[in-house]
Amino acid sequence: MKTVIDAHNISKVYNRKTIPVYAVNNVHLHLERGEFTALVGPSGSGKTTLLNLIGGLDKPDEGNIFINGVDITNLSSNELINFRLRNIGFVFQSFNLIPVLTAKENVEFIMQLQKMNKRDRGERVDKLFKEIGLEDKLNERPSKLSGGQQQRVAVARALASKPQFVLADEPTANLDSIAASNLLDIMVRLNKEENITFLFSTHDQRVIDRARRVITLVDGKIISDSANVATNTMHPTN
């Protein structure tokens, strides 16, 4: 198995000069390619901070994070942006699509940043929209799409750059049960069929139930890291 994420002793401290608050406290995390992992814990436990650190959106105060063997804690701001563009896909809780672009343009935008040619972009957009089941919504703006449809477009956007893994911060939090179930179906299928690694923070029991590994975080520390037996029986690890 190829290691995708390897985080060593990472900590993130706020209010360091007054009363230090450890949002992430000496966390070790190791993810292999093809994992489908849920990061769970109560509000304020540090899930989003940990995802931001792993995604290179924020820098840890202590420790190192290796993505595909690259220590991203030593990268400059611009190197990090380029690294994110080519290696990490993001799905945000509130979709975060660009409102003035159509669904297709939102997905294509990432590939334009990667300087992919127009023909390849077109082919990849068609493939991704087929996978998320929104071929008929290509030219709709986000405001014309339901929350579930917007989040599916956000997943397509996250996958557009063919990333090493996808980080999803509470991806189902703003969705109704049907939309959440549809989204999970897509993510599970992509994980299973294309071996895409997913790490998502969630409170949603439906997501936790379908994860193959569940990491529990409390007060910035991992208190448990276990395989989800029921899910692993249904979807054995690739």
């Binding site: 995604g55 563009l85 993001f90 990432i110 956007r157």
Partner: peptide, 10 residues
């Protein structure tokens, strides 16, 4: 969001 998904600041 644009910087997060990979657009450089320049």
């Amino acid at each position: 969001m644009l910087v997060a998904i990979g657009m450089t600041k320049i």
